[in-house]
């Protein structure tokens, strides 16, 4: 038989479950560990898909003779004790690898092994809010900002003029808002 060592803690409304499955026997055993929490299993993920052996109900995999397997998952349910249980075990076949099941035979296995080629989040343009600063102003300031050298005297003067005018315009109260012709 196998022993299950468990620990569960709640953090930010999520239960984090840590499990150790120990097989003291002399033969490898296939083990089914089921979630007992009253909520979905959030399994560990590899390349965006559930790690090998995990499904909606828990984990199934092989523990080597005399070996241990560490497992962990999360769940949106409140912690209960024990959070998980071993529902069955059986003697594992000789050909079953102890730590990696179903290497590539499924689409998920392929993704896990080869890695998803999705573009990184940084590469995806965000839906942009309309920028309140006009493009010309933005690019002028941006160019000064990106440059490694300090602004020249003329540029510094220009910046100060802009700052003064921008401050003065922003300070005007709503009732004396200028007509479009006055703003230049």
């Amino acid at each position: 038989m196998v022993d299950l060592d468990w620990r569960v803690e709640a953090q930010a409304g999520v239960s984090l479950v840590e499990l150790t499955v120990h097989n003291p026997g002399r033969t490898a055993r296939r083990v089914r560990v089921a979630n007992r929490l009253d909520g979905a299993v959030w399994p560990p993920r590899r390349e965006g898909v559930a790690a090998a052996g995990w499904d909606d109900g828990g984990f199934e995999g092989v523990v080597a003779a005399g070996g241990r397997r560490a497992l962990g998952y999360a769940s949106p349910a409140a912690p209960t004790e024990p959070p998980a249980e071993v529902v069955w075990t059986e003697r594992a076949g000789v050909a079953e690898p102890a730590d990696r099941s179903a290497l590539r035979a499924t689409p998920d296995g392929v993704v896990r092994t080869l890695g998803a080629a999705r573009p990184p989040a940084d590469a995806v343009p965000r839906p942009t809010e309309p920028d309140p600063v006009p493009d010309a102003v933005e690019s002028w300031l941006g160019a000064l900002d990106d440059r490694s050298t300090a602004p020249t005297a003329a540029e510094r003067e220009a910046l100060e003029v802009v700052a003064r005018r921008a401050g003065a315009l922003a300070d005007r109260s709503a009732d004396e808002r200028p007509s479009p012709g006055d703003s230049r």
Binding site: E47, R104, P107, V110, A116
Partner: peptide, 15 residues
């Protein structure tokens, strides 16, 4: 299939 050797090539090859 796309270029490369990632899952976006592996999954069509599997299917």
């Amino acid at each position: 299939c796309p270029a490369g050797m990632a899952a976006d090539v592996g999954v069509p090859l599997l299917a």
